[in-house]
Design a protein around this nucleic acid. Structure first.
Lengths: 225, 225
DNA sequence: GGTCAATAGATTCTATAAAATCTTTTCCAT
DNA sequence: ATGGAAAAGATTTTATAGAATCTATTGACC
C-alpha cells in the first residue's frame, strides 16, 4: 500500500495509468467485468478515484459503463478495428497536409531528429516497446505542428487499441514501416501537402495490412518464417 | 432541491446534462473558472458527482483540468475551429463511403424519412433548435450504418462546439444546407461511395464557410439583410 | 523600495459510511 | 413441477468529513 512508483500526481491519474498498463499487457481482457471495489483493493486506493478513472475510460470509449451494472471492457470486432484504421488514415493524412501549411524549419528539424532516433534503434534491433514509443513520438512530432484539437483527436484513436499485436516485434515489418516514413518525410521536406497526406494515408493502411497478416500468422500457428 | 426535470438516471448524468446545456446557452463562457463546490450548490447535488462530470468533460476536451487548480472552459481560436471542421469533413466523408458499403434498403429508407422531416420543418419555418436537432438526426442516421466506433468518433467532434452561432437560425443558410443534403442522398441512393464522400465533405466545408460569414455579420453589426 | 519567505485562506482531493439500486436465490402458489 | 414474487445479498452511487495542496496576502529582511 506504499508502492507508487513515480510521483503520484493524483490517485485518479495513478489508477488510470495502472488500468491502461493492465489493458495493454493483457492482464485485463475485453469482456471482463471491472468491479470498482476489487480494483480499489488491488491498487491500494479507495473506490472514489477508481470511479473517476472509469468515467474517463468510458468517455474514451475504452470501456462500457452501464448504471449500477458495473463496467465491462469493450470488445473489438474485426470490422471495428478496420474502421479505426480507416479513421486514422483520414485524420493523420489531413494532419500531414495541415502540418505542411504551418510547419517551421525548426519543427521539421525536430521531426527529422525523431525519425533518425527510430531508424537507429530499428537497425540496432531494439525491443518492440522502445520502437513503438519512438514511432509514436515521430508521428506526433508531425501532428503537433497542427493544433491541439487535432492532436487530441488523433490521440483518442491511438488510445483505443489492444496492442497485444505489436507490429514492431517483427523485424521485417519494422523495416517496411521505416521505408514508409521516408516517403512521408520527403513530402514534408518538399512542403508538398497533398503528397504528405497520400503518403501518411498509405502508411496507416499499410500498418493495417501488416496487422492483419500478423493476426493470421498467429491464428495458423506461425509455422512459416 | 427537488426539481429534476426528467428521470434522473444518475447524479453524474444529470450534472453533465446541465453543464452541457449551460455551455450551449452561453451561461458558462470559455475561460470561466468552474468551481466544483459552486456548481454542486448551484445544481443541488454534492461535489462528488460534479467531479465525475468534470472528468468526463476533460476527457472530451471541452474543459481543461489541472490538478488542485480547478477546471477552466477551453477557448477556441479560429484556427482550432477550422481544424475541427476539416476533421469533420474527413471523418464524415469517410463515414458516407463506408455507409454505402454496409447500408441496407431499410437503412436508406430511414435516412430518407429523416431528411423529409427536416425539409418539412425548414419550409414550415420551425425554430433553429428544432432544425438543428433534426439535422443531427439526419446526419447520424447515415453514420449509424457504419460501426459504433465511427459514430462515437464523430460524436466527439460534434460535442466540441460553442453553438452560440446556430446556422439554422438564418433561413437562407437552412435552404442551402438542405440543398447539400439532396446531393448526399442522391449519391447514397446510387450506392456511389466516392460521390457520397465528396458530397459530405463539401457539405461540411460549406457549413464552415457559412459559419464564418455568420460570425462576420455578427461582428460588423448585422446591418445588411 | 524590492524581494523572498511564511502563514492564512480557500479549494481540491481522498476516504469512509450511509442510501439507493440491481441481481440472485428462495419460497409459495398454481 | 413450473412460474412468479419477495427478500436477502452484493454492488454501485451519493454525501459528508478530514487530509493534502495551492494561491494570495502580509511581514520581515536585504
Amino acid at each position: 500500500m506504499s508502492e507508487m512508483d513515480a510521483l503520484p500526481k493524483s490517485r485518479t491519474a495513478y489508477v488510470l495509468e495502472r488500468l491502461k498498463a493492465d489493458l495493454q499487457q493483457g492482464v485485463i481482457n475485453p469482456g471482463d467485468q471491472l468491479r470498482q471495489t476489487a480494483i480499489a483493493k488491488r491498487y491500494g486506493v479507495s473506490p472514489t478515484p477508481v470511479r473517476e478513472a472509469l468515467r474517463v475510460l468510458a468517455a474514451d470509449g475504452t470501456i462500457e459503463y452501464t448504471s449500477h451494472r458495473g463496467a465491462t471492457v469493450r470488445d473489438f470486432t474485426p470490422q471495428m478495428a478496420q474502421d479505426l484504421y480507416r479513421m486514422r488514415a483520414e485524420l493523420e493524412g489531413l494532419a500531414c497536409e495541415v502540418a505542411v501549411e504551418r510547419m517551421t524549419d525548426e519543427d521539421y528539424a525536430t521531426i527529422v531528429a525523431a525519425n533518425e532516433r527510430l531508424v537507429r534503434e530499428t537497425t540496432a534491433g531494439a525491443d518492440s516497446a522502445t520502437l513503438s514509443l519512438l514511432n509514436k513520438e515521430l508521428h506526433f512530432s508531425i501532428y503537433r505542428c497542427t493544433s491541439p484539437v487535432m492532436v487530441e483527436g488523433i490521440q483518442l484513436l491511438w488510445a483505443r487499441f489492444s496492442p497485444s499485436v505489436t507490429l514492431w516485434s517483427v523485424g521485417e515489418f519494422s523495416r517496411e514501416l521505416d521505408r514508409d516514413h521516408v516517403a512521408i518525410l520527403d513530402a514534408l521536406q518538399r512542403r508538398d501537402g497533398p503528397a504528405a497526406r497520400a503518403a501518411m494515408h498509405a502508411h496507416v493502411m499499410h500498418a493495417w495490412e501488416l496487422r492483419q497478416t500478423s493476426a493470421e500468422l498467429r491464428a495458423t500457428g506461425a509455422s512459416a518464417s
